[in-house]
Each structure stands twice: as C-alpha cells, then as structure tokens.
Design a protein around this nucleic acid. Structure first.
Lengths: 128, 128
DNA sequence: CCTTGACTTGGAGTTAACTCTAAGTGGTAC
DNA sequence: GTACCACTTAGAGTTAACTCCAAGTCAAGG
C-alpha cells in the first residue's frame, strides 16, 4: 500500500506519516524497487495505534519511548506496561477535568437558554 | 489581590495571567497607585472560567471571541450560546475518542499483565 | 520521446500557547 | 538610606507537532 492510500485510510497526512518514520515513531517501512514506501499490515496497525494514542493527546516522546522498547524485545515488557499504566492514569485524569468543563458548559448553556426565552417573551408582549 | 497570589490560587502562572490580559482574553485588571494589578472577585472568576475551559483544550481564539461578546452586552446572548454549544459538541466528541483510547490502553495493559505472569511462572519453574 | 503526477529527500516555515529576558520602578525591612 | 524583592513593560525565545517547499526521480500514457 502506498503512502497516499495509507493516508486516506488512516486519516493521517502523508507528510505526517513520513515525519513519524523520520523521528522513529514508526519503524522504517519497506520500499519497492524504486524507493517508494510499501506499507504492509503490521505497518498499518502501527499507524492506527499511533493515531489512536495521538488523538487522545499522548505525547510523541512517550510513544517513541514505548515503540523503542517494543523493538528491544521481550525483556522490556514490564517497562512497557508501566508506560501504558502511567499514560492511562494521566488520560483518566484529563477526562475527569474535561467532564467538569462539560458540566460547566451545560450549566452555562442552560442559563443562556432561559435568557433567550425571556427575551422572546418580551418580544411577544411587544407584538400583542 | 496581587498577581502572585492569583497565580498561586488559580494555578495559572503570573506570566500567563499577564499574557491573557495582553491579548484581551481577560479584560484589563484594575491597578493600585503604583501601577500594580489588583484582582477583584470578578477578575478571579474570569480567571477560573478561562482556566477550566483551557484545561479542556478550548482554543484561546474561541474564548477571546466569547469574552468579546460578553463585553458587547445583552444582544449577543444567542451568539454566545451558539459558541458554547459548538464547543460542548466538540468536547463531547473528543471525550469519546479518549474513551476509545482508554479502552485500548486497558486492553493492552491486561495483555501485558498475562505476559508478565507467564514470565514469573517460568522463573518459578526454574527455581523449583 | 515527452509530459504528467505521485513519489522521494533534507530542511525550512508555521501555529498555538506560553515562557523568558532585560531594564526599570516602588514599597518595605534593617 | 540602601538592599531586596515583587512588580512593571515590550519584545524575544521556546516547545510540540506538524506542514510546506524545492529540487529531483521514476513509471505510465499519448
């Protein structure tokens, strides 16, 4: 699969895919005879994983570290799990903050709703 | 209240508080005789509101627009509500994405957990 | 054969949101 | 009265994560 197809399928721009590879976030992708990237299934899964994690705001630096440990093999399993646990903790904390913000937004929206209704009633009274 | 106290209480750095004021995200704060900012209760509430919204990732540009509408008075109520509704929608969408990431993290962590257990069992077998 | 279009590279440019610096002022403790 | 510390300003610098650019290569279609 060529980079443009991967980009379309994954929603990650070709520039970003090359960038991820350059900085080592994705291991080097195989090339065809003329030097063009040919993504295989494993590459695709890596892209999907990175995309999911980046969507949630996990920093590239942490993901790079994780990917490097994966390359190093089986005796990094505990370290990898530790990274994921820490990120999970931070993500959950962030989501709690966001829930608070969501609640505040809902409250403010409802306050504005009554203000709008009041305004409309005033207009109706003018009309009648 | 001086900027350092507001910073400590709100968890927003003094530099950032001045920056917010400079770009108009917070209306000008009153100064004492020698030109030093003296935050009142309303200022504090504004800071808290901005902090909450920024924590959840709402962009400064949107918040500035909202704050400007507030300054303009009562006939911007519908526009303000529209902004909040749109941001609420985007925030909820983001939280759903994050929930997916959280689920994936939990799954991966559990997979690593079994891998770690297997490893430990192998060690025990070596010992006995 | 020549054009077209997708790909390649290294490196420069952009964006959002701070964060820091330098130079200066003003009130307070010793 | 002088040393100190928090404050002030305008503007420069930083960081993360892309995003774009110029110049070049290659396979396929007309």
């Amino acid at each position: 699969m060529k980079i443009s197809e991967v980009s379309e399928q994954s929603g990650v721009s070709a520039d970003t895919l090359r960038y991820y590879e350059r900085i080592g976030l994705i291991p080097p992708v195989n090339r065809n005879g003329s030097g063009i990237r040919d993504y295989n299934d494993i590459d695709m899964k890596r892209v999907a994983f990175i995309k999911c994690m980046r969507n949630a705001g996990l920093p590239i630096e942490v993901l790079s570290e994780y990917v490097e440990l994966v390359q190093q093999g089986d005796n990094t399993i505990e370290a990898r799990q530790e990274i994921l646990k820490e990120q999970r903790r931070q993500l959950a904390a962030k989501m709690e903050e966001m829930q608070e913000t969501l609640d505040l937004l809902d409250y403010k929206i409802s306050v504005y709703e009554s203000a709008v209704l009041k305004k409309e009633q005033a207009i109706i009274q003018l009309e009648t």
